[in-house]
Design a protein around this nucleic acid. Structure first.
Lengths: 165, 165
DNA sequence: CACCAGTTGCGACGTAGTCGCAACTTCGAA
DNA sequence: TTCGAAGTTGCGACTACGTCGCAACTGGTG
């Protein structure tokens, strides 16, 4: 559901090189992980997978590379409604922005694109005289399957809160 | 710019009581801070201000109370594009959802409401058969004043990154 | 093929948030 | 009005995520 679609392997590397950014063994490993990811990965997962390609990759290199990619708008940083801790997830930025819809019960992430979203961004640029660089729309709630089984909408936000009051 | 507008003091407390939730001195202090806030506050700021009302308030009580309010959908949790660290900001949830537009240069937050946003949410509910509980749209970019003075759009994302490559 | 700006690993650090537990408080019922 | 159970709190230790300074290393250009 998340990613590649129309991605050519090595594309990320090529884009960075084209911008005059030095390519290292470590970066190659990290970029390759991000490019071939089949789901949204957090920094720790990217680290672990990159180390399988190049054992020397360090935690701080992953964070520094993610910073670099964010600055160049080549990845988007997501929270996915903080369904699992406070960390961030990363995904290759390709073409049109999309919305992340997260089921608070089963954790499934659905990606959604909409003309309305594009129009809304245009409206903000126009009416607020604002130059949008990144727009992140995240939605939490219950998917069709989970909504049926849902007892009380108050239970289980962020998964697993039984006690209340 | 952010908050009160149509808020009656003590309303938050009344709403919690109405839901059968026990009211303590500490909670009263925290709720009062949130209700009367004139800007978006993070947990540390809420703690400091609440302690001025009741010195006994503890950090973990603030976090626990924020959890409670989130569960009951009485506050929204914001990231404000992580312009200043990784923490979260909180605001009283009132009526219609709004969008947070953050200038990456001057840090100003603008709140924006739009019919299109409402329609977009309806579209997601319909087309994805999804019951939306919370929707958070955050936008980063440059406000009119800052866009003029902007040298390179690459410089200064998250404020203050000079070195690149 | 040498040079040097840029990058890395390391380790120490900072900050946001969580948790278990014993003591305390709230509030409804008697 | 008092009592007691359920719920809440403070404390302190802890985890997770991310950052930073510095010395060593390396990519790619002249």
């Amino acid at each position: 559901m998340p990613l590649p679609k129309t991605e050519i392997p090595g594309r990320l590397q090529a884009e960075l090189s084209a911008r005059g950014i030095r390519m290292t063994q470590q970066r190659r490993a990290i970029l390759s992980v991000i490019e071939t990811a089949k789901k949204h990965l957090d920094a720790a997962q990217i680290l672990r997978q990159a180390q399988r390609l190049n054992a020397a990759v360090d935690r701080s290199t992953v964070y520094r590379t993610l910073e670099l990619l964010k600055r160049h708008r080549m990845v988007d940083e997501l929270d996915l409604m903080h369904m699992d801790g406070e960390g961030h997830y990363y995904e290759r930025k390709l073409g049109r922005d999309h919305i992340h819809i997260a089921c608070l019960r089963c954790g499934r992430i659905t990606e959604f694109m909409s003309e309305l979203f594009d129009s809304l961004k245009q409206q903000m640029e126009r009416e607020c005289r604002f130059a949008i660089v990144v727009a992140r729309l995240e939605v939490g709630g219950y998917c069709a399957q989970c909504a049926d089984r849902q007892l009380s909408p108050l239970a289980g936000v962020n998964r697993g809160n039984l006690h209340d009051t």
